[in-house]
Structure formats: structure tokens, C-alpha cells
Design a protein around this nucleic acid. Structure first.
Ligand SMILES: [Zn+2]
Ligand SMILES: [Zn+2]
Ligand SMILES: [Zn+2]
Ligand SMILES: [Zn+2]
Lengths: 135, 135
DNA sequence: TTACATCTTGTTATATTATAACAATCTAAA
DNA sequence: TTTAGATTGTTATAATATAACAAGATGTAA
């Protein structure tokens, strides 16, 4: 079993798309990404989806499932690819990746009725962000 | 503020669609639902989506976000509408709603870095179900 | 170097999931 | 009974995602 982390050198398309998502202040949707990278020669949805799939796989980005949108990982990548948690503001749609040792420990150790453990999970919290709460 | 739970009498379309999902052994997708209820006079996607929206809202069913599929709630409905947890088998796609007082307590009390609490959440665990583990 | 496998790309077409807009009908409560 | 709100039926369209296939790049292994 491999335990060494392979260095993932991003391909051209992957790099272009990662850079775009990484500097976006909010999660980006696939077709918005497509629109934004057309000037760089990426013309078809499939080119975008292929890059997204790979970036998700290697943990550079995460998919916000309830929003069909993608956000760059800010938890030292890769490590968290399979165990993610986010807070989502229901008013302004601000999304923040949650990095809590306590939470990840709790979830990684959680056992269901049958005593099953799950190393992969995705958790999305919904509520109001600080700003929206004040208003 | 209302604290009394309104009895939600389902409308015809809602009842037809809920019955279908409720007796399905696996989560159902919208267009599969549509196909299955066409003989009962529900002909258009929108009729299905409207019923699904309502059923989700009142907690009779839940959406499995990572699968775009819907499953009937077996946790005494409603109560859990906004705080859901599921285990999903990555091989056979079996989905089970998790009903754990400990888990829901932990998540309902979880505070993020800013001390924010979130009463709504959706958690999806991924792994192998009992059957698939043996194989 | 050559040959081979594998990965990545480009491209067209198509499948799947979901909503917009509007008119008609039903339902509940004032 | 009137009226507001919810629900329905319908057509059209938007948004999200994948299939299929050919061509090019990359990296081993003889
Ligand atoms: Zn991350
Ligand atoms: Zn907000
Ligand atoms: Zn439930
Ligand atoms: Zn299974």
C-alpha cells in the first residue's frame, strides 16, 4: 500500500482552472469557469469537467454538493480530500471550509448502528454568516 | 413564532410521489420518478420537482445531494428535515439514514472558529456497506 | 532509439437535472 | 361568498454533466 504522497504536477488545463477557482472569493460553477477560461483556449464543458474531476480527486478543490460548485482547498490540500466540512450562508451563499480537529476526529471515529466506520464524509452546515446575522 | 407542527395533508401529486419513493428500496432520481408516475397522470418534470420540493420542505423525504436522488425519511419525519445524516455505499449505492442521538447532538452543538452554531446540516458518509465489505 | 502503454487533450453530440413563465383550478378562511 | 394563496397543467428552456472517438503528449522498457 502506497503511503507516499505523489506530487501532482498539474497539467495546463488543470492549472488554469485551479488558479481561477483559487483566486475566486466564492465557489465557482462549472459553466462559469468555462466562460472565464475560454480566452485561454478551453472551449468545451468536458475540458472543464475533466480538470475538475482530477482536482477534486487530488484534493486541490472540493465540490460543494448542495450548490454544484467548486472551491479551492485551504487545508493543506490532499489530506482533506475525503473528509470535508463546510459552512454555507443561506443568504449570501458565502462558503467556508471548516478545519476543526475535534470535528474531524469525531466524524472519523463515528460508528453507525452496525459498528461501521467511515473515513470519507462530506458535511455541509447551513445558517447565517456573521455579516448576514447582523442585518 | 409557531411551534405547533401543522399536519401536512399531502396533495394528490405529493401523495403519489411520496408513496413511490417510500416503497422504493433505494433513493430515486427525479426522472425515474417521472417515468414511474406517468401512468398516474403526472406528465411533466415540473410536476415532479414541485412535489419533491414540498416533500423535502416538510421532511417526508430527503435529498441525497451527492447523488441527486431522493429517499423517504424513516426518522419520524419532519423533525429531521434540517439535520440529516446518511451512509452511502460506494459500490452498491445503498443509502441508509443515520439516526444517532449522539451524532445529532454533537453536530447541533458544534461551534465553528467564530463560535457560530448551525441547526441545519447535511452529512454524507461514504464507505462500503456490510455486504460489499465481505466480497 | 523504438515500441508500447497510459494519460491528456480536443471535439461533437447527447444525456441528465432543474427552472421560467403563465394560465387555469382548487382550497381555506375571513 | 369572496378573495388570497396554494396547487396544477403545460410548453419551453436553462443548467449541469457525460458518451464516444480521434489525436497528441509523456513516460517506461526493451
Ligand atoms: Zn480542504
Ligand atoms: Zn451571509
Ligand atoms: Zn429523516
Ligand atoms: Zn454496498
Amino acid at each position: 500500500m502506497k503511503t507516499v504522497h505523489k506530487e501532482h504536477t498539474l497539467t495546463k488545463n488543470q492549472q488554469i482552472i485551479f488558479d481561477l477557482i483559487d483566486k475566486s472569493p466564492e465557489p465557482m460553477k462549472a459553466y462559469s469557469i468555462l466562460f472565464n477560461v475560454q480566452k485561454k483556449g478551453i472551449k468545451a464543458p468536458l475540458q472543464v469537467y475533466r480538470a475538475l474531476d482530477k482536482l477534486v480527486e487530488i484534493g486541490k478543490i472540493h465540490k460543494i454538493e448542495s450548490r454544484n460548485a467548486f472551491i479551492a482547498c485551504h487545508n493543506s490540500s490532499c489530506q482533506m480530500a475525503n473528509a470535508t466540512a463546510f459552512s454555507i450562508c443561506e443568504i449570501c451563499e458565502k462558503v467556508t471550509e471548516i478545519s476543526s480537529a475535534g470535528l474531524s476526529k469525531y466524524l472519523a471515529n463515528f460508528k453507525d448502528k452496525d459498528g461501521m466506520k467511515y473515513s470519507k464524509y462530506n458535511l455541509e452546515f447551513f445558517g447565517l454568516c456573521k455579516k448576514c446575522k447582523v442585518k
